[in-house]
Nucleic acid binder design. Structure first.
Lengths: 209, 209
DNA sequence: CGGCTCTGTCACCGGGCGGTGATTATGAGG
DNA sequence: CCTCATAATCACCGCCCGGTGACAGAGCCG
């Protein structure tokens, strides 16, 4: 508006700020427009600068994706609850239940991570592989920290079992965004998700309880 | 080879055959090249004819996808075992276990259905919606027929519970194709899948057993 | 001030995409 | 044999993509 005439628009020769704007634009495009529309031109448009700068400052899309992957480590830190130290009394089943519910909500709330998760199911490029690896590592670290000093029950393949639970959650969340349902169950209202939560509890305690 | 000189190449004015070739090409492209490369040009190339014919005979990609969706009903028929009548003695848990293992193998063996499943997680277009709906219906019908006269246990939300199981399987199979692993578990060798199968059994029986 | 580096922009390229007339070849029927 | 509906192809359009080289301008430093 008025400011545009006074403040001198954008090109103020601030490389760091521009790079940050590009990175933010990259995350936004990926999160909001999806990985299908994610590309040099789209990011440049969103960042309000020339795509050339993406090549210069990040070395192309690959570098930008790597930078995004780097930021993904922060995701876990912002979503991991700080009260994890107070649950050392629970059983392993209780722990997994809590973990499952937390992961459900965290994933539901984060479109960027959802897109990455969907992307790695759709394409196997080197860049996507790295990005998904960053995500995977963040998740693994999260699981580890959540587990804490808790000892898993012996004689059960907890790794595979937990993978199944996480997989179920992820698939349901991803499906809910696009189709709003999965295998006959609706995934729209919060009531729908309450049913999912209940089923999850039942599932986890059926195995570990 | 030699035939090419003798048999008179392609344009033999056989509409039905051409349409069939196009449909087959569509399924092949989607299954082998993935939904990202699925398009008018790719299908026409694969079918060895002009893309115009796709518009004429199917009304564009949408119509072709609808035709593919129609064929999806056959998928269930080719994968549903005929001995379903012989298992009326099993418990509901045994039934779900068998269902899960069957679905696991069926999905692993069918790249077309896998692609559709991945597609519906990545994009929400009207066409994809319909295609995924066809898939969903086929799956639902399969579940229904598998269930047969079996009575589910009372007081449990079997629908949501089963959705979780199916979701876990689907996610793992899709992830195995692109990344070969999920949440820390490898998904490459048949041994890996044996562990998954074991965990699935445990999961199902933990809930229904 | 004069130059030089670095930031930012513009214009352009080849290529693939979806989509659409206009055109050619084929084979069946009078 | 000629005709005519139709199967099949060709040529072309505009658009957007990723990528690159040339260019403009701000600011620092001698």
């Amino acid at each position: 508006m008025m400011d545009d005439q006074l403040v001198r628009e954008r090109p103020v020769k601030d490389r760091a700020a521009t790079a940050a704007r590009i990175l933010a634009a990259g995350k936004t495009v990926l999160a909001e427009d999806g990985f299908r529309l994610f590309g040099i031109n789209a990011v440049a448009r969103r960042a309000g600068c020339d795509k050339q700068l993406i090549y210069r400052y990040f070395g192309g899309l690959d570098g930008l994706m790597e930078a995004i992957g780097g930021d993904l480590g922060d995701w876990v830190k912002t979503h991991i609850p700080e009260d994890s130290g107070g649950m050392f009394l629970l059983t392993y089943g209780d722990l997994m239940e809590r973990l499952a519910l937390l992961y459900l909500d965290a994933l539901r709330a984060d479109p960027l991570v959802r897109q990455i998760a969907a992307w790695e199911l759709a394409e196997e490029t080197e860049q996507v592989r790295r990005l998904s690896e960053a995500r995977s590592k963040a998740l693994a670290g999260w699981l580890e920290r959540m587990r804490g000093s808790m000892q898993p029950p012996k004689g059960t393949d907890t790794v595979t079992l937990n993978a199944l639970v996480i997989a179920a959650i992820q698939q349901l969340v991803l499906a809910s965004v696009t189709t709003g349902r999965f295998a006959g169950v609706s995934l729209k209202t919060e009531k729908d998700w309450d049913k999912v939560r209940a089923a999850l509890k039942r599932l986890v305690h059926g195995v570990y309880g």
